[in-house]
Simulated assay, not measured.
Amino acid sequence: MPSESRLLAGARLAVTTFTTVPVRAGRIDRPVAGTAMALAPAVGALLGALLAGVLLLSGAFAPPLVAAGVTVGAAALLTRGLHLDGLADTVDALGSYRRGAAALEIMKKPDVGPFGVVALVVVLLVQAAALADLAGRSWPACVAAVVTATATGRFGVAVACRRGVPAARPAGLGALVAGTVGPVALAVGAVAVALLAVPAVPGRPWQGPLAVVAALAVAALLLTHVVRRLGGITGDVLGATVEVVTTLVYLGLVLSG
């Protein structure tokens, strides 16, 4: 099949995986899944631009913290809350101190345990507080920051799907995408999110890229731990990666020295 068809199918899969945009699903296989995961940062950048618009528009009529809360809610709505659900399930599994199949069984339960609840509260609070701070900055810096954080969160998924990282289950999203992203796509994605981050902190062009690198480094360490505990990645782990990386980038962008 021509490479254009694979690219188009991958773009469709990326959009349907990371947003609620009603795009018709096309061909789905591991090569297409690899393309979709490689394109995840691009989808994140577009989503981030939309969320920045929500933040700026609502900030024109409401206090910064209210605008930030609306933006966090919009982010959950535009992603069906799947990443937040994955975060809660992953933290519950890790908090159980169980391994392998026993931990995976906890992730499949529909309820949310205390560890998951705390993780959700902390992540949402940090994101809202950071967005409230960003709402007070110039609109170019605000847009750059939100786009950077959202794109880097999705780039974290590409990192989690790099070659050599196994799937925890023989079926499911994790099995479809695990090990499908090659080094070239990772290198291009890393450069892209770092460049997006340069204008995110006015007067400190180094702080944005540093926040990106630090967030991805922490995510890589967490991924190593998750693979050791669970045996590989799952769809929930990918969702947790999105939220953890996004939150850490926001935090890094609003810290001041």
Rank of each mutant, 00 (worst) to 15 (best):
V143W: 10
A25W: 08
L77T: 12
V72C: 04
A25G: 14
A9Y: 09
A171K: 14
G156M: 04
V70C: 08
A60C: 03
V54D: 00
A192K: 11
V201R: 01
G179V: 03
V122E: 05
R6K: 05
V91N: 10
V54G: 10
V147E: 05
R163Q: 15
F155G: 13
E4T: 10
V23H: 09
L221W: 05
A144G: 14
V212H: 02
G156K: 04
L47N: 02
V198D: 02
V201K: 01
A211R: 00
A11I: 05
A93E: 00
V227I: 07
A194E: 05
M37K: 10
T35A: 13
L173E: 01
G26D: 03
G235F: 10
V244Y: 03
V122P: 10
A194L: 10
A149M: 09
P170K: 10
D92A: 02
A187M: 06
K108Q: 15
G113Q: 08
V72H: 07
G48N: 00
R163E: 14
S138K: 15
S256C: 13
P64Y: 01
V123A: 14
T35Y: 10
V21D: 07
R229M: 08
A194K: 13
A240H: 09
A171T: 14
L82K: 04
R24C: 07
P110V: 11
T247W: 06
R137S: 11
P209G: 06
G136R: 11
R137L: 15
T71P: 03
G113W: 01
P140Q: 14
G81N: 01
T17F: 04
A187E: 10
